[in-house]
Design a binder for these strands. Structure first.
Lengths: 280, 280
DNA sequence: ACACGCATTTCCGTATCGTGGAAAGACTTC
DNA sequence: GAAGTCTTTCCACGATACGGAAATGCGTGT
């Protein structure tokens, strides 16, 4: 397949110019914590200050961006948030998974996340935070690399050999911590181990001190459409608890699949019955 | 030239047209759960099919909208979600609520409070004092019991039956005045009445001579994250004014919700247990 | 199978609408 | 109070988005 076909489509003709520009601004605002100043935004997206200003005020009138008169900074507005939540509402997965995520949090005492794959990265869509003082901070909407996150590895482990290879070719295995698996063979072995186990493990591969266990969620065709994870500090996700927590996530993903009418593909490991320790 | 009825054209000058239109489409998509067809969207926002199509494909290339080739339906895309969540980072209940609290104080002439729940008690986070000589004295950061304060009862009234029971089991109903509701059944009945009414009432239940009306503030999940109240002496918060003041707080809480992107659960008079964070 | 109707997608000439330089404000710093 | 930085307004030019129309696709009824 032609490697450039997708890239071309993204920035070539057929696109309404103003729109692309406005979107570039919005994307920039979403990244930049705490908002940005007019000129800062303008230079970042390569537009004249006047143009940037016009677009920003336009967006502001629709409350897609907000302008703080005191600090003179622009940031993302409510309406953008409301609209973005429309995405979640349009996906049954999030709505149907939520009760099970809650139950999983109660049972495990750890933060529970739901993520999907988007353009080679895992994106957090939903989260139930635990009550502990020390907890993880994965922001909703955040993108994390697939090869070094619990959810990501759960998703990868459900791919065919061919698709997996293509993913790695395309996105590589960037090092995030000393424990990140940067070797292709090692990653494949790790994913295979995860498949056998029924859940993937992220052992400080993404952030130091952070551990995750995660399981993929399959749809009715046996495609992994998402993943659930439990994440917490090393101090709490100990070696001893690992297996128990692992079966809990696997159990939760199983229940979510029942909810959305999905099922693991035939070659996926059967989830043992002892994997559902908690009652509904 | 777009014919006769173009009210939105004269609406605001300085608005980039394409942008307003694209945003109209996005807003429409965000409302309509499950997406819409091209023509449906086009007519909804008053645009020709070809124009609508061009805008949609443009937005799609940036993944702000998603097109399901099977159903031929358009819906909100991932990137919109990712971008919208940038809002959460800069969102701050206290700051966003403040202008509405001030307006409420001006309209009612009474002190306005904002509180959240923390470990089973209501905590005052923000306040706009009225100009009267005689006024209430709730200090910022003060903790008050949930069952006998306006803000507390507003927060409780948004809980599921199960959680409410748990709260009462855990914290009881300490008597503060002769009017404090110390009976579990009576409290539940009172909360139900508050839900039906749209605002909670504290009638000298916390301190003699002090009356409050309060309404809960919901976030995007429909969880009550705080409450606003009007409080003042019996002498001013008379039976006659009660209803008017009640709808004022309810109105203010509504406006604050619009500000933070929250909304009350569909009919929060009878909150279904699944709509709640920790309900089993 | 064929035609009909309805919906989506592409095309293109026109004039509308967005562009960015320039200049005027606003505010800060030295 | 001058000099500098950043924001906001203005405007003439021409690039660009508009929408009617035509082409394509898709499902349905005969």
């Amino acid at each position: 397949m032609p490697p450039s076909s997708k890239a071309d489509a993204a920035e070539r003709s057929g696109n309404v110019q103003v729109l692309s520009r406005a979107i570039a601004i919005l994307n920039h605002l979403a990244q930049a914590d705490g908002g940005g100043s007019l000129t800062e935004i303008g230079t970042a997206v390569g537009l004249a200050a006047s143009t940037t200003h016009r677009l920003l005020t336009s967006l502001e009138s629709e409350r897609y961006v907000r302008f703080d008169a005191e600090t003179k900074l622009w940031s993302v507005g409510v309406q953008a948030f409301i609209m973005g939540n429309g995405f979640v509402r349009s996906r049954d997965l999030v709505r149907l998974a939520r009760p099970h995520m809650r139950a999983l949090m109660e049972a495990s005492g750890e933060t529970v996340n739901l993520a999907i794959e988007d353009q080679g990265a895992a994106v957090y869509l939903s989260q139930v935070e635990c009550r502990e003082m020390m907890r993880t901070f994965a922001r909703l909407g955040a993108r994390v690399p697939m090869h070094c996150s619990g959810v990501g590895k759960a998703l990868l482990s459900a791919l065919s050999q061919a698709l997996l290879t293509r993913h790695i070719d395309r996105h590589g295995q960037i090092r995030m911590t000393a424990r990140t698996i940067t070797d292709r063979g090692a990653l494949m072995a790790d994913l295979a181990a995860g498949r056998r186990r029924g859940y993937a493990i992220d052992d400080e591969e993404h952030a130091v001190g952070l551990r995750c266990v995660a399981a993929p969620i399959f749809n009715e065709h046996g495609d992994a459409v998402g993943a659930v994870s439990l994440s917490g500090p090393m101090a709490r996700i100990t070696d001893v608890r690992m297996a128990a927590l692992g079966s809990m996530v696997a159990g939760a993903s199983f229940k979510i699949m029942a909810e959305i009418g999905g099922k693991a593909p035939l070659d996926w490991e059967e989830i043992p019955s002892h994997a559902h320790p908690y009652a509904v």
